[in-house]
Each structure stands twice: as structure tokens, then as C-alpha cells.
């Protein structure tokens, strides 16, 4: 009973929040609705006895990802409404909705008929966090290390992309501008040496 009430409540809340995300014109509204939706989704993880994942969902998504977006907002003009020139809004809405439905059906149909069997049974006599740790550090050790490496690469990429050196693009500018850039670079280098 309790499970059903919680499921329908959080299901309705999540769907409402995500509908706001895809339909609103204000970036700030969209971002706050997304953060709320993420927190509501963690409720499903708690309902499904995946407490560790629920906590990770709150910490990583609402703590890290949404905070990163909020910092990104400092660079964008977030008070202005998003202008999107869609020529025929109703046709776009109907077509994209139908395409999305078809996509889900196509991707979901093979799984409905498939015979799923547990390949990694849940360890007995353990809490969820302990079981996650045991499985993560035995069967999934190498993917775990690769994920760590991937996060490092993403961190370096983020730092370099947001840095000042990337302000000039060599591929998008014309020749005179790139010559000016080159001269400035040499001048700066000379000043550094002297």
C-alpha cells in the first residue's frame, strides 16, 4: 500500500517536472525543474531497495551536475527567454511525439520477448551498500577504473575548454585575423622572455 502511494505520487511529480523542463521558455525554470525531478527520481531508487544509488543520485546529479549548470549560468544570459523560431509548432510537437513513441517501442520490443536471467545474483546477508561494494570491486573492477580515468579526462577537458586560450578559434577565423593572433602570440612570448 505504502509502496503504491509513493510510486504514484513520485511518478506524477517526476513526469510533471520533466514536462516543465521540455516545455518552458526560461532556462532558470527549466534548470530548477530538472533538479527537482532528479531528487524525485532518487525516491524510486529508495523504493527499489537501491539505497546507495539513491544517495549517489542526489549527490552526483543535484549536487554536482546541477551545480555545474548553475555555474555555467553565470556565462549565459539566463534572465532572457529562450527564442526558438519553430515554424509550425503543432506539427513539430505531434511529429516529435510520435517519433519518440516509435523509438521507445522499437527499442523496447526485443526486451519484452527476451528471456532474462540473473547473471550476478544479489549477495545474501548484506545491506545494499555492502553488496554494491562487493560486486563493484570484484566483477566490475576494471570498468570502475576506466570510469575513474574517464572522469579525469573529462575534468582536464573541462578546465582547458573553459580557459582563456581557447577564445581564438584558428579554424573559424579568416587569414588576417589568424596572422594578427600569431603576431600577438610572438609579442607575448618576447615579453615573457625579456
Amino acid at each position: 500500500m505504502f509502496e503504491a502511494v509513493a510510486f504514484y505520487l513520485f511518478g506524477a511529480l517526476t513526469i510533471a517536472m520533466f514536462l516543465i523542463v521540455v516545455s518552458t521558455k526560461n532556462i532558470l525554470y527549466s534548470m530548477s525543474a530538472l533538479a527537482a525531478g532528479m531528487i524525485f527520481i532518487s525516491a524510486f531508487f529508495f523504493l527499489l531497495d537501491a539505497e546507495f544509488l539513491g544517495v549517489v543520485q542526489i549527490v552526483v546529479y543535484t549536487g554536482a551536475v546541477m551545480a555545474l549548470y548553475a555555474f555555467g549560468m553565470m556565462f549565459f544570459d539566463s534572465t532572457r527567454d529562450v527564442k526558438e523560431n519553430i515554424e509550425n509548432p503543432r506539427a513539430v510537437f505531434v511529429l516529435s511525439g510520435m517519433i519518440a513513441l516509435l523509438l521507445v517501442l522499437m527499442l523496447g520490443a526485443p526486451i519484452v520477448g527476451a528471456n532474462i536471467e540473473a547473471s550476478q545474483p544479489t549477495p545474501e546477508n548484506m545491506g545494499n551498500a555492502q553488496a554494491v561494494g562487493v560486486v563493484l570491486f570484484t566483477k566490475y573492477l576494471i570498468p570502475f577504473e576506466v570510469a575513474a580515468l574517464m572522469l579525469l579526462v573529462a575534468m582536464i577537458a573541462g578546465i582547458i575548454l573553459a580557459g582563456k586560450k581557447m577564445d581564438h578559434s584558428l579554424t573559424l577565423m579568416n587569414e588576417e585575423d589568424s596572422n594578427i593572433c600569431d603576431r600577438e602570440y610572438k609579442k607575448n612570448k618576447k615579453e615573457e622572455q625579456s
Partner: peptide, 24 residues
């Protein structure tokens, strides 16, 4: 099966790194 939770865990890691690069 524990594999479902493991996969979700790695998806969260991929999403976090995707956001870092995408925002840059």
C-alpha cells in the same frame, strides 16, 4: 540481479563527465 545497479552507477559517472565537457 546486481548488474542493473552497477550499470546505473556507471551511467551516472558517464553523465557527470559528459556534463563537464559539454558545459566547457
Amino acid at each position: 540481479d546486481m548488474t542493473g545497479q552497477m550499470f546505473a552507477f556507471f551511467i551516472i559517472a558517464v553523465a557527470a563527465s559528459e556534463v563537464a565537457v559539454a558545459l566547457g
